[in-house]
């Protein structure tokens, strides 16, 4: 072989040895290699998510007996949930409240996402960070802020009294479903922007040009092109808000009062002050089932929306 240069051949010669059996197995089997790398994460999530859920499921078939549990499997807790109206009312109220909060959040965020996607041309990243920043501030503190605003002696009441518009503070502001819904909407707005923005940004601008060329004005263009094409984002955002808000604990606990309680508060109470873990487990399982059902519905809706687009 001709010499390229003065490089000493032994310097760079590499042994073509085959490494150990494990290395060989990993080299040939990409799936195994992948799962080996993921295994710490998967083990932790199994121990921290799957096993706890299975235990929760088992406990939900137990019943409380004094301070301990009666571990004979029974459907008693589930029967109670079906028969006692209190549970149904609370579940229904949770879905209803988070449903309204979800719709309100989407309605408020959509124009903002639209603005950033279509009317911000420079520093988009700055805008996105500015909008999503509050989401990273402690959820507890964001809820707490609304207590400051809506409180009996809070910002709104004291301002109105100070301005002389009302004589006595309005009592319905705090400790009401409205307070919870307002707070949930505010708390999740920063989060809803992202999926909405992404779906709007993805829209091929030439479609809008084409629609205009074919005679659509801005309004018709929005309803015939932009809105349908951004539907996947709307659905994703709804899902991402609806699920966690349904099971929220902090907001109703701090702002809900008796009328604004949600299912999360009841679950917490079962594990806390009421000390009926089997009942708490049952409610958690029901909430999970509900989430699974909603997830499937959203999945179906997404498919539908995408099928219409494609």
């Amino acid at each position: 072989m001709t010499q390229t240069s003065s490089i000493d051949p032994k310097v760079t010669s590499r042994p073509t040895r085959t490494s150990g059996r494990i290395a060989r197995l990993l080299y040939r089997n990409e799936g195994l290699r992948g799962y080996l790398l993921m295994s710490p994460t998967l083990i932790i999530l199994t121990v921290g998510v799957i096993i706890p859920f299975l235990i929760l499921l088992v406990i939900s078939f137990w019943t409380r007996a004094g301070v301990g549990f009666d571990t004979t499997p029974s459907l008693a807790n589930y029967a109670r949930v079906v028969n006692e109206p209190m549970f149904g009312i609370l579940l229904g109220r949770s879905f209803w409240m988070s449903g309204i909060a979800t719709v309100a959040t989407i309605a408020i965020c959509y124009p903002m996402a639209y603005f950033v996607a279509f009317h911000v041309h420079r520093n988009k990243m700055f805008w996105l960070i500015l909008i999503t920043l509050p989401f990273w501030i402690s959820y507890l503190l964001r809820v707490f802020a609304w207590r400051v605003i809506l409180g009996y002696e809070g910002v709104i009441n004291s301002s109105l009294v100070w301005l002389g518009w009302i004589k006595a503070p309005l009592e319905f502001l705090l400790y009401s479903p409205t307070a919870v819904i307002i707070t949930l909407t505010h708390a999740w707005a920063a989060f809803a922007i992202l999926p909405l923005y992404v779906s709007l940004e993805k829209i091929d601008k030439s479609l809008l040009v084409a629609a205009t060329d074919l005679g659509d004005g801005p309004v018709a263009r929005f309803f015939r092109i932009t809105l349908p094409l951004s539907m996947p984002g709307v659905i994703a955002a709804s899902f991402l808000i609806f699920i966690p808000t349904t099971g929220d604990y902090i907001t109703p606990a701090l702002l809900g009062g008796p009328d604004g309680m949600m299912i999360g508060n009841l679950i917490q109470a079962q594990f806390g002050s009421i000390n009926n873990w089997p009942m708490g487990a049952t409610l958690s399982i029901i909430l999970m089932l509900w989430i699974a059902a909603v997830a499937l519905a959203f999945l179906y809706l997404t498919r539908l929306a995408q099928a219409r687009i494609a």
Partner: peptide, 24 residues
Amino acid sequence: EPATQGDIFIDGQSMDSVPPNHRP
């Protein structure tokens, strides 16, 4: 990429299971 079937020889050595960093 490992071959699914067959083998590759370089300079008379089988490259089956020889990772890239050990190939000439």
